[in-house]
């Protein structure tokens, strides 16, 4: 019967440029690779379009159209020749698409898949605020991209460690970074304190410190892996991280 941990599972991350560089890869496989990236990073594109002045419905339609076109017309096929940061590449192709796109109001899709499930295109208050307050569309795009990246890393962190003894570290870590539900002004509440976490998980505070260390280290690894999917090299990963960080704090 299957083991619960496959001992030599390499948690492989295929840089997206490698995927496309495999010349002759079937459309199906490229499509799946692109699909996955789009599923994770459609929000920044949407936010960008909104900041550019489109309404919610328009932005939603455009995002769908963009991804459909990206697949159909192979926007990313030329990527292997360049240094690969999917984030910058996507923005470039998105702009090009906007320039040449003539929207029709109700048009049958030629790809069978909606990149973004329609029910997910709800704009939260937080996002609406950020759209209003952003200095530029590019800046907003990058900030949303950072969020999406962290999201993906957190999801991966939980998936990878589910059912293992490391799950506890992950849970403590999640409890530590998540804000409590709702602060006074409708914004996020304060994060849980060590003693609150200790009580919640029935641990000593020293344990909480240790678990946090380990959870943090696990998160770092998950982030690295997630990041590696959207860039072409380790060096680019470093650069990407510092740029995204600057957008958040600068």
């Amino acid at each position: 019967m299957p083991e619960s941990r496959w001992t030599h599972a390499r948690f492989a991350t295929t840089a997206w440029t490698e995927v496309l560089a495999a010349r002759g890869a079937s459309t199906e496989q490229s499509a799946r690779a692109i699909e996955e990236l789009c599923r994770k990073y459609w929000k920044p594109a949407y936010a960008y379009l909104r900041r550019k002045g489109r309404s919610r419905e328009e932005a939603a339609d455009l995002v769908q159209d963009y991804f459909a076109a990206a697949l159909e017309k192979g926007f990313f096929d030329g990527a292997e020749r360049e240094r690969g940061r999917f984030r910058t590449y996507m923005l470039a192709t998105l702009n090009r698409f906007l320039y040449s796109h003539r929207p029709a109001s109700r048009r049958a899709r030629t790809t069978p898949i909606d990149m973004v499930p329609p029910d997910e295109l709800n704009e939260s208050a937080r996002l609406a605020r950020d759209i209003q307050g952003a200095a530029s569309a590019e800046e907003l795009y990058c900030r949303e991209w950072a969020r999406a990246l962290v999201n993906a890393a957190l999801v991966r962190l939980q998936e990878e460690n589910r059912g293992t003894r490391r799950e506890r570290y992950v849970q403590v870590f999640m409890a530590h970074i998540e804000p409590a539900a709702g602060g006074a002004d409708g914004g996020p509440g304060a994060a849980a304190s060590y003693s609150e976490i200790a009580t919640r998980f029935n641990l000593s505070e020293t344990d909480v410190t240790n678990y946090l260390h380990r959870g943090r280290r696990l998160y770092d690894e998950a982030l690295r892996r997630e990041l590696r999917n959207s860039v072409g090299s380790d060096r680019e990963a470093e650069e990407e991280l510092s740029e995204l960080r600057r957008y958040l704090t600068g």
């Binding site: 957190l154 999801v155 960080r245």
Partner: peptide, 24 residues
């Protein structure tokens, strides 16, 4: 998201996010 894992990054404070993007 469709998976059972929580993904709260959408509501995180930008400084917290920045911290999470500083792995090393």
């Amino acid at each position: 998201p469709k998976s059972a894992s929580r993904a709260p990054a959408s509501s995180l404070d930008p400084l917290v996010l920045a911290g999470l993007l500083s792995p090393s």
